[in-house]
Nucleic acid binder design. Structure first.
Lengths: 224, 224
DNA sequence: ACGATATGAATGAATG
DNA sequence: CATTCATTCATATCGT
């Protein structure tokens, strides 16, 4: 999996000053350690939320709380949390695509997503005091998988270390040209740009914005 | 996507020089960019419109003109302009959401008060046309900058600047301070994260947050 | 030191 | 307008 982040940066209650961030002791006026370097505690919590609770895309409200909570362990901002979830989700998905690619095709979904849900939040006979409201995110449907990973504290021991993982692999091929009037590749309203090769716009309009586009236009804007 | 991802972008009439897209450096054999990579000039103009003129959601005809104008500096389509404004606006608001939503519902909409200042990031000198060797500047590979573009032209010529000036005339005081010819055009949303180095807990906290992860799902209703 | 990988950050493009 | 996905850039970190 990812390499276990072993060094602790500023953490502990109340956080600390600037993160030392290792790198170079001396930080010039350059980019003061630009990016956020999560502490192990922060990561642990984030992962718990992600895997244990199925939090995938926390709402703004949740992000605030999460970041507020995590701030105890080090400097953190809302955007960090936001990005973390975004990235984590994206990468997980990305990796997964490579692991079981090539197949797909007919069978829609062979394996359910890895969704480590120790407790199916959404169910479980409604624990006392908590209304079983459906989580807003709920990207993972699975719920009663016995093969749960003992996340929780254990995970904190070695950071992360579960789930399978593939090396990042980029393909330089693909680019199945979807052009020239083949199948519908989706919606491409904005075709008329002109600069591009295809100058035909099959769709008169499909977007609120385009409704206006067809009008006015008093002076012809030179196009390409 | 649709249009043939030509690597070369046609010049729109002698205005600017070769548009060496900011991102450049096709990391890989990525000949199919598919997505619009705004040039520094384009970004600059867009920001100019956004901040200095309060353009937030340009109308279709405006979009057409803007894109037509920007085409001088590189390939661009109407949708790019449209999306740009949409995104820029959305992210600006999003940033605000993450930093203070505090369900307390009080005064959060009053003064956006955008404060573009984060770390002592460089950006001080802003020599004309010279990128200040900032490690993070990625959009500045232009060695032969065309020249200072007369941004004002756009509005003056077409005179749509005042049209929607009325619309949003709130926080357009700041001038984005985009350096004139390159360098980081990035804007720092997400600023007021607070706790940066302070280690103070700005929020009264005590949410039913991590105590029981599942709680987070009930936050919606449960709230604080 | 480098190169590879992991991952934070940014943003274009879409969708609801 | 809000949210989300995908792709890419930038950089911290680790391995050799």
């Amino acid at each position: 999996m990812e390499q276990p982040p072993q060094n602790e940066q500023e953490e502990g209650g109340g956080g600390g000053g600037k993160n030392s961030s290792g790198s170079n002791s001396n930080y010039l006026c350059r980019q003061t350690s630009t990016r956020w370097t999560p502490t192990t505690e922060q990561i642990r919590i984030l992962k718990e939320l992600y895997y244990n609770n199925g939090v995938r895309s926390p709402t703004a409200d949740q992000i605030q709380r999460i970041s507020a909570r995590l701030r105890q362990y080090g400097k953190i901002e809302g955007k960090n949390v936001f990005y973390w979830f975004q990235n984590h989700k994206a990468r997980e998905r990305q990796k997964k695509r490579f692991t079981n690619t090539t197949t797909t095709v007919a069978s829609d979904q062979i394996h359910p997503n890895i969704c480590y849900n120790k407790y199916p939040i959404i169910n479980t006979t409604t624990p006392p005091g908590v209304a079983s409201s459906t989580p807003s995110s709920s990207s993972c449907s699975n719920s009663s998988t016995p093969a749960m990973v003992a996340v929780g504290q254990i995970m904190g021991s070695y950071g992360y270390g579960s789930v399978n993982m593939e090396k990042s692999f980029r393909d330089c091929t693909i680019s199945a040209g979807c052009n020239g009037g083949g199948g519908t590749v989706g919606h491409n309203f904005w075709v008329g740009g002109g600069a591009a090769g295809g100058g035909v716009n099959p769709y008169p309009q499909s977007y609120p914005f385009l409704e206006y586009q067809r009008r006015i236009n008093a002076m012809e804007i030179d196009d390409e």
